[in-house]
Amino acid sequence: MKLNYVYIDTYRTPTHIQTHFHNCMELVYYHHTTGYITWKHSTQQASNSLVFMDKETGIYEQLDFSDNTLLIIPPNILHDEKHFSSSKVTAIGFTPEKENSFFFHSRNPILFLDHKKIAYEYICKIEKEYSKRSPFYQEMICLLLNRCLAEIDKTGISSTKDKLLEETKHYIDEHFSHKIKIGELAPQFFYCPDYFSKIFKEKFGLTPKVYIQEKRLEYAKKLIMETELTLNQISELCGFSDYIQFSKFYKKKEGISPSQVRNTKE
């Protein structure tokens, strides 16, 4: 891990921190204040919703922070903050050793509501090391930060990731007959497309693309055998762009065309 910066700021009045971004991860701890954070996915378009994740309650449409809450902001996300009262905030910029970490690939800020005790203990130790500025204070802060993130991972982030993957799978199960683009699906569930495909396969054994194909194939086989729908209707209901695409895919997977299957049924 590389330590990029440590800021310990006290604001005596309500404060609006203007839009900015960081080239590294940022861990923010709000000692005492209430407010909210907004962010943009790019310089062109602001996010229409505010989202936070919590291992117990999942995904919500608004991110509000209050006393003793911990926030992790991924790199290169334009964001601003509004504090409704006087506040003390500790911000730590860092670069993880492994870019395949869940934190690094999240597309949105992550707010942890159930790690207050863990966060408070480590933030106090980090602030103490920073105030002393001993010869190896940066190494000590990195060590403490690594331990803090490991504790969070052990007590909640894995279950958060699993829950989001389950929600992604459920979304596909409900919408596989529609046109689904992985590049558009991944950001809905906070992941870069490549990382999303990787962790989806790790959990379910198939990439999202292959999983969608298998769902469509399974449904098509059921409709061919159990209904009188035309093959064109079936191809449309299963999410294929046309019958030709459907027929080629079906034959490639099953070794027989859907029309041949329909003929054997008759």
Rank of each mutant, 00 (worst) to 15 (best):
N100C: 03
H115F: 01
N100V: 00
E81T: 07
T90P: 10
Y122N: 04
K132G: 00
L149F: 10
F94E: 05
H115M: 04
I152D: 00
A119M: 01
C124D: 08
N100L: 06
F136Y: 14
I73D: 06
Q62W: 07
N68H: 12
K117G: 00
T90Y: 08
L144P: 02
R107M: 10
T90K: 04
E151V: 00
S106R: 03
A150F: 14
L111M: 07
K98Y: 13
I126H: 05
I77V: 13
S101Q: 06
F84S: 10
S134F: 10
K132F: 15
A119F: 01
E151T: 01
V89G: 02
I59P: 06
P75H: 07
K125D: 07
E127T: 04
Y137H: 15
I157H: 07
S87L: 01
D153H: 13
I123W: 03
I123P: 01
T90Q: 09
I126N: 03
F136E: 14
T95L: 06
N100I: 00
K128N: 13
E127Q: 12
L113N: 10
Y120P: 00
Y137G: 08
A150V: 05
H83Q: 09
P75K: 02
S66M: 07
K132P: 01
G58C: 08
I77Q: 10
F102Q: 02
E151R: 09
I126S: 04
S86M: 07
C124T: 07
R147P: 00
S131L: 05
H79P: 11
G156K: 03
K88A: 06
D80G: 11
F84I: 06
F102D: 04
N68T: 02
F104A: 02
A91D: 05
S66F: 12
C148Q: 10
L63I: 13
D64H: 13
I77W: 10
G58V: 07
I157D: 08
L149G: 04
F103S: 03
E99V: 01
E129N: 08
L145Q: 12
G58Q: 09
D114P: 00
Y60R: 13
E121V: 00
I141S: 10
F65C: 05
T155A: 12
N146G: 09
S134I: 04
G93M: 09
C124I: 02
Y130S: 05
S134M: 02
Y60W: 12
L78D: 14
P96E: 12
S86C: 07
L71Q: 13
K116Q: 09
D114C: 02
E97D: 14
Y60L: 13
R107N: 13
K116F: 00
H105L: 01
L63Q: 12
F103P: 03
D67E: 11
N68S: 11
S134R: 08
F103G: 02
F136W: 13
K125C: 02
F103D: 09
R133G: 00
G156I: 01
L78I: 02
E127F: 07
T95R: 05
I72Q: 06
